[in-house]
Design a protein around this nucleic acid. Structure first.
Lengths: 126, 126
DNA sequence: CTGAATCCTCAACGATACTG
DNA sequence: CAGTATCGTTGAGGATTCAG
């Protein structure tokens, strides 16, 4: 706990944090991580399935996010088969699942805003 | 609402979002905004008071964050006095207060992680 | 006291092509 | 299928100085 009036910080993985917000943001911040986690919250997904759900992401960025999330212990990567085409599945770890409540709160706020102030658009099939 | 199987997105301020996570992250993403909002959640604060609570931020970045948050309608800026030194106070707007639940969730997760995996450090006074 | 202005760096992000 | 390699771009963030 942060003690009022004291100059106290957290050290985590050798890095100092003055605020818990910072810590969480290290894990889900950036342009893509929260979105990837959001879709994995629904269950195991393969690379191409994630790409399909997040059309705007490039394969490179998706690859980087997945490796980062795995290194952070939030997701698990399972490879099936040794010769291409291989099958790779991604899913939340138990640690990653502790984020679900937080992810829900973030999504809920965005959904409300989109519903109240935004406009729904149906895209044409290409 | 996102309709399953349909290619539906939100349009908000002229920008398209495929995912509610994206929307929220536009408002609280980046290195500083969530932290600033977190401290303003506790009540009205002046520029120097915010700076004191977020030692790592530069005045430039704090200034930018505050203007961005104000432009997004999340915080309110009140100026007292016309001749320097002026007094400027920042506080959450009603719209900004709708984020409190989300901010709490984010902070809670970070606090738990800091408590479980991190280490508490007491800094020396300079 | 509260910033704005300037200049700078660097990491995140992106487009495209290629591969085990 | 699931990426990696390479190169290019962009913009967030930072250091410093100056101003109402």
């Amino acid at each position: 706990m942060i003690v009022k009036g004291k100059n106290v910080v957290y050290r985590l993985d050798g890095k100092l944090y003055h605020c818990p917000m910072d810590i969480t943001m290290k894990y889900i911040g950036g342009k893509w991580k929260a979105v990837v986690l959001w879709y994995l919250k629904g269950g195991t997904l393969r690379f191409a399935e994630l790409k399909k759900r997040i059309p705007a992401i490039t394969e490179k960025m998706l690859s980087i996010q997945l490796h980062t999330l795995e290194a952070d212990g939030l997701i698990e990567r399972k490879v099936y088969g040794s010769k291409p085409p291989v099958r790779v599945e991604y899913s939340l770890t138990e640690f990653g699942k502790t984020l679900i409540e937080t992810l829900n709160a973030i999504s809920k706020w965005g959904r409300n805003l989109g519903a109240n102030r935004g406009e729904l658009v149906e895209l044409q099939e290409k």
